[in-house]
Design a protein around this nucleic acid. Sequence first.
DNA 1: CATGAATGAGGATTCATTCAT
DNA 2: AATGAATGAATCCTCATTCAT
Lengths: 202, 202, 202, 202
Amino acid sequence: MASDPAKQDLIRDAAIRVFARKGYHATRAEEIAEEAGIAVGTIYNYFESKAQILLSIFEWEFEEEVGFYESLAKRGMSVQERFREILRAHFARLAESRDLAVVLVRERYNGSGEIGEAMAKMQRKMLDRIEKLLQDGIHEGWLRACNVRMVAPALFAVVQSISETAMIYPESQQKAFLAKAPEELAALLWSGLGQAEKGAVT
Amino acid sequence: MASDPAKQDLIRDAAIRVFARKGYHATRAEEIAEEAGIAVGTIYNYFESKAQILLSIFEWEFEEEVGFYESLAKRGMSVQERFREILRAHFARLAESRDLAVVLVRERYNGSGEIGEAMAKMQRKMLDRIEKLLQDGIHEGWLRACNVRMVAPALFAVVQSISETAMIYPESQQKAFLAKAPEELAALLWSGLGQAEKGAVT
Amino acid sequence: MASDPAKQDLIRDAAIRVFARKGYHATRAEEIAEEAGIAVGTIYNYFESKAQILLSIFEWEFEEEVGFYESLAKRGMSVQERFREILRAHFARLAESRDLAVVLVRERYNGSGEIGEAMAKMQRKMLDRIEKLLQDGIHEGWLRACNVRMVAPALFAVVQSISETAMIYPESQQKAFLAKAPEELAALLWSGLGQAEKGAVT
Amino acid sequence: MASDPAKQDLIRDAAIRVFARKGYHATRAEEIAEEAGIAVGTIYNYFESKAQILLSIFEWEFEEEVGFYESLAKRGMSVQERFREILRAHFARLAESRDLAVVLVRERYNGSGEIGEAMAKMQRKMLDRIEKLLQDGIHEGWLRACNVRMVAPALFAVVQSISETAMIYPESQQKAFLAKAPEELAALLWSGLGQAEKGAVT
DNA sequence: CATGAATGAGGATTCATTCAT
DNA sequence: AATGAATGAATCCTCATTCAT
């Protein structure tokens, strides 16, 4: 089992492109190899299985996200600012890597067996982070009290779905869509959809 | 190709249970047959393929939803009331059929080829309806002006994610969770998370 | 997993022929199927794996042998007579199924993992039986005292090796060879190679 | 193709250990390299293929045996003494190299194609030598007349099987077992199993 | 000569689908 | 219509061997 990280990245990136194009299950190992410009066997010098490649894509992304969260925390921002930063960063990244976004959204549940568990675990950690962010916000008085167990996944899903929707648009409109997304979402999440004058839902 | 609707339902329901348990791709035709208490061959008297079963699950659900939407429209409710009704109905149905919910959420992207297209089409129609609902709401002055192309999928996703999160909970807590869901979501969507006093995101 | 014993036999017999021709490892599942006049998939309706086919060949043979041993014991023969009968039966069977003999001899150690263990176990049981036969013989006074732990495998091996050697001969000579084998071996085992007059090894 | 005999031995010895542990087919070239403390590529500087390594193990052993036979012939021993010497030497060597013995016994038929033929040829030569020894013995009046074509492989097999049986025992008992083996076998082969008083098999 | 990453042919096994009964 | 054994295309992964460094 070799471990040149550059080649691992080469393979992972090729996999992202093919998974995005055809879906995880419809992608054959050979296709990843072709896309990467290597032989099938080489894949298996760097990954234990096709499923492991998928997992590694999620792990990679997860580390990026977590790293970013932590960098925000260190910069001592308010919860509100952190949210906006997160949204901006998230959508900026998507704008860069449409394929990655597609894969992250679409293949979320396609791990099976151990890999599936590992992926589920990662997502739970992600939610935990969001929950914590919310709780901090409530504690600091920026957010109204809410059921964080419920709102956290809702938040996560909103972001995901926008990502996903963006993927539908052709390249040209997509950029504009993703550029508007953080503001629109921030507005939605902070102020809701209601018209103050008419009164909110009880 | 036979067409006894009762047997079709029998097969579809069996498929829902097995898909929920093992995921679409990991489910073998034989397992569906076993769950339904019939022979594999029989499945193919009622469905063209395994993928068609999946599609039919989505179609079924889609028809239900659309029918419900239309019944609401006919009853001449306000947008606000319609939203609440939709959410209530949605979560009530989930509480009844946990397996269906799991499948609808998890296998959304697992159609490939024609079936995939059909499933995507259905989802787009679903979004169109939500968009229309939003636009009506804005027009009627219940909702603030917002980018409906962006908010519609967000709405859809929020609902989905709550469904999905609910699935994690054990039977006992799940009911309570789903019971609280409509209010919590309605609050989130109408009023956002912000504290009025501290000022909303601009 | 189907269980028509006739088809199991069909597959096993085809496998015996191909294993005999090319060796277990060099035989592809497809070749067994071709030889049996069925499709590859069908093999796996009756056997869990290629290795299981090999194991089943040994099990089959083992049951035959054991059954025969028991039938002898019931007929109340002397140890001496039982030995001769066993040898006769053994070689008669080989004369009938050259391929089986080749496989039994050649692939004895080619099981790996669980299958290997199962095969080893079977062979140990076989040896146990022979040991018991020897001990009875000694007890009844037909055989001189000897180290049965050592003589049993020797006996077993002698029989095997003759079988194996017979396989080298062309069909015509083979029959004659196998016909002479029981007497020759019986003589070897009872009287040894020594010339009484010149004195035995001390 | 390099030809440093010391390194060839290094590789062959490593191969013997791994083959003994896992069997020829289950052994990967890499494992041999690891065991030898070299890189895979290096193996192929000294051997044409994995099969060639196996062949070379048999060739090596064959040369040893033949050399020993010849040395005995030169020392002008009687057939009887030569047999005993051969048995002693054989088992003494096994006691030294358990792994070699395992491989020689177990992998006898695992050559395929040319290598298989080469291995078969070697074994036939081995048998020829034993046949010759027997014939000399008969001619000199030490042995009773017997079918040497049949007795030779029987002899060979007896020796092999004892070797093999010895391998089952734990280190401690194994030595004792192998020490007793030559006498026990010599007795078996010279005098048979029969009780003189009761009369031999006819 | 040594290295070990790259290669890619090869093969066991799976499973959706068919079809004879 | 129901059955379930038969089918065989499809695919992941292995591993002996090569060859650029």
